[in-house]
Computed example of a mutant assay.
Amino acid sequence: MKNANMAKRIAVIRLMMQGYLGIQVAELLNIHRETVSIYVQKFNQGGMDALFKRHYAPGRKPYLSPDEERE
């Protein structure tokens, strides 16, 4: 995988399938144990597609209107 973040998600699932505990996986990959739990939960709910789907925050609304920005 080119994206290190996605590779780490795959590694979490592989290690869990090999029988490692969540806390062990977290220590091996240097991530928080709750992150491991979230990745496993996503995988269990929707497979690899759900694991790779990322939702970004919509961001803050701009202070200026589009017309004011053009000025």
Rank of each mutant, 00 (worst) to 15 (best):
S37D: 09
L51K: 00
N30C: 13
P62F: 06
V12I: 15
F52Q: 04
E68Y: 00
N30P: 00
L28D: 06
F52D: 08
L29K: 05
N5A: 07
S65G: 05
P58S: 07
T35R: 07
G47M: 04
P58Y: 09
I38L: 15
V25M: 04
Q18Y: 06
G22T: 06
S37Q: 09
Q45R: 11
K53P: 00
K8D: 02
N44T: 10
Q24P: 06
K42S: 06
G22D: 03
L28E: 15
A50T: 07
P62A: 04
V36Y: 01
A26S: 14
G47V: 05
G19F: 04
H55P: 13
R33N: 13
R60F: 12
R70G: 00
K2R: 08
A57M: 04
K2N: 15
L64G: 03
M16C: 14
R70L: 04
Y39D: 12
Y20E: 13
E69H: 08
M48W: 14
S37M: 09
L15Y: 11
A26Q: 04
L64D: 01
K42L: 14
G19H: 03
S37C: 11
S65D: 05
V12G: 00
Y20M: 10
N44M: 07
S37E: 03
P62T: 04
P58H: 09
D49Y: 03
M6V: 12
N44H: 13
L64W: 11
V25A: 02
N5R: 08
R14D: 10
K61W: 12
D49W: 01
V12E: 02
D49A: 11
G22E: 05
K2Q: 08
M17Q: 13
L15D: 07
K8E: 02
L64S: 06
V25Q: 02
N5V: 13
Q41I: 03
R60L: 15
I10Y: 10
K2Y: 05
D49K: 03
M1T: 03
R54S: 14
Q24T: 14
N3L: 11
T35S: 15
Y39M: 12
G47T: 13
A26I: 05
L15R: 01
N5K: 15
G46R: 08
A50P: 01
D49R: 07
M17C: 13
K61I: 15
R54P: 02
D67H: 11
Q24G: 14
E71V: 10
P58K: 12
E69F: 14
Q41R: 13
M17P: 02
R54T: 15
K53W: 06
F52L: 14
I38W: 05
H32K: 11
M16Y: 14
H32P: 00
Q18G: 09
M6F: 12
R33L: 01
M48H: 09
E71K: 12
M16V: 08
I31C: 09
E34R: 11
R60K: 14
P66G: 00
N5H: 08
P58A: 10
V36L: 14
G46M: 03
Q45H: 08
D67R: 11
Q45L: 06
E27G: 10
A7Y: 04
I38Q: 04
V25W: 03
R14T: 09
M17S: 15
P66W: 03
R70F: 01
A11D: 09
M17I: 08
K2A: 12
R70I: 09
N30G: 05
N3H: 13
